[in-house]
Amino acid sequence: MSTAVANPSWLQRNKMTVTPLMFLLPGVLFFLVYVINPIIQSFNISLYEWDGLGTATYIGLGNYTELFDDRAFEISLWNNLKWLALYLLAIPAGLLIALFLNQNVVGIRIYKSLFFFPFVISQVVVGLVFSWFYLPREGLLNAVITLFGFEPINVLGDPTMATYGIIAAGLWPQTAYCMILYLTGLNAVDPEQIEAGRLDGAKGIRMLWHIILPQLRPATFIAFVVTIIGALRSFDLISVMTNGGPFGTTRVLSFYMFEKALSEYGFRMGYGSAIAVVLFLIMLVFIGYFLWSMYREERAARR
């Protein structure tokens, strides 16, 4: 043994621990300050009555008990459920379009991009585009349905229709997203299994269900994740298209929280945070499930 390496420095000996720490430090620090700590703080703020400027008064679970009698909160919660359920339609719709476009004809690549690109447009513009599409007098929707002899409708002005009108607008880019996931998935489907299926006489729907869909599972999983997150995050469309109206019927939790904490309805930071905590807990159920699935995959990959 030579003396040159007999006394490696502490840094040298622990470089396999120190190096990753140094690489992680800036990213983790940013994330702790701007994401993790605010989550904890929000939980804390939700226990106070606070206008954002003056002193905060501790009221325990007061904000939460108030939620129980809040009709607007109840409507928001129901609308969130509608969003969740209907938004999932983007997955089969996306699959359908992907199956339709999964061909090798001339110009198909351009068609695929044109079908996809609504996803790239900001939700604010999507909201505007659809609110003009729905306009009672100038909108194209009514121009089309009156052509077929129906009465014109005011989608966003009608409390029974407005939420569905907004969800339809949201489904447009979301379906495009699911479509592109499935197109990528279909590209990687094993041709030998399809041949084997054909030899066994599987066709159409049966082929899709028993041979194609199982191979599309990774795409379906991601489609589920992004669609559920997207549904619970809906804010931009509501803000742009109806601003919560008519009569507050299109509010969802994310929007109602913003209204309570920051808009003309007053600066009730504590109450707003309580709403945010409820939304967070709903989301946490899904996040937990996603993480658990990923964890199982990690374990399987390590073996």
């Binding site: 300050v33 954002g52 994740v225 995050r233 804010f235 904490a261 967070f280 996040i287």
Partner: peptide
């Protein structure tokens, strides 16, 4: 740490809003 990043990425913006605005 990896899962902290993933979970944080899925969080609703509203749970961050008041503290981040304050900060």
């Amino acid at each position: 740490i990896f899962f902290m990043f993933i979970a944080g990425n899925f969080v609703p913006f509203q749970i961050l809003m008041v503290p981040v605005r304050d900060l």
